[in-house]
Design a protein around this nucleic acid. Structure first.
Lengths: 98, 98
DNA sequence: TAAAGTAGTTTATTTTATAAACCAAATAAT
DNA sequence: ATTATTTGGTTTATAAAATAAACTACTTTA
């Protein structure tokens, strides 16, 4: 009855990151940090997990002389997000049983 | 930007339980176990947490000679669920920023 | 009366999330 | 010029959570 929720996305910070990346297509580490309110350490760990799963790409470039970590959503990540939302809807609308 | 998600509800099993109780108004332990696919131990722990928070009531009665644990959603639980869903929507609809 | 099933609880283990400590380079201050 | 300080992170340690395994108690069936 209740389908399992993708544990990678069912996490407050990771879900916020993916949601943000879907709406921006590309974002730098400090921006994500600011928008989510996460600590750098936590964000670093969670970005890693998303990247390892292939949900996002993390590109380490430079902006002038300073390092710049650019994150983007992948097609896999977008699909996983859409699937997650669909699954979650069955939890959120208790009066639409099957 | 991303409001915090109620950690008590942002849990697969607890969310399923609350969702189920909202749609049934009352359910027995074995039924919840079956519907959620949870193990008895896990369910027992999570029901306790929801009860401690005042989101559900857990009434221990008897059905003939056998023990029967009846769970119900409370007004507090219903309100928390509605608030959770509202907050979550901002994560799920990435193209409705503020 | 012994075995098996029902209805759970308690406790231990694993996993996950989070924060604290750390590192390296660049910029600003003295 | 060398010493803070800030920026941009990573690594590691700790705290919290989820989960499963083991256990209890009582009931029904063989």
């Amino acid at each position: 009855m209740f389908k399992p929720l993708d544990p990678l996305l069912h996490s407050e910070l990771r879900l916020a990151v993916v949601s943000l990346l879907i709406s921006t297509e590309e974002a730098e580490f400090p921006f994500i940090k600011e928008q989510t309110g996460a600590t750098a350490g936590n964000l670093s760990v969670q970005l890693d997990k998303l990247a390892t799963a292939g949900y996002i790409t993390v590109e380490k470039t430079f902006k002038g002389k300073r390092p710049c970590t650019l994150c983007r959503i992948t097609p896999t990540g977008l699909k996983a997000f859409e699937q997650y939302v669909e699954t979650l809807r069955e939890y959120l609308n208790p009066n639409s049983q099957e």
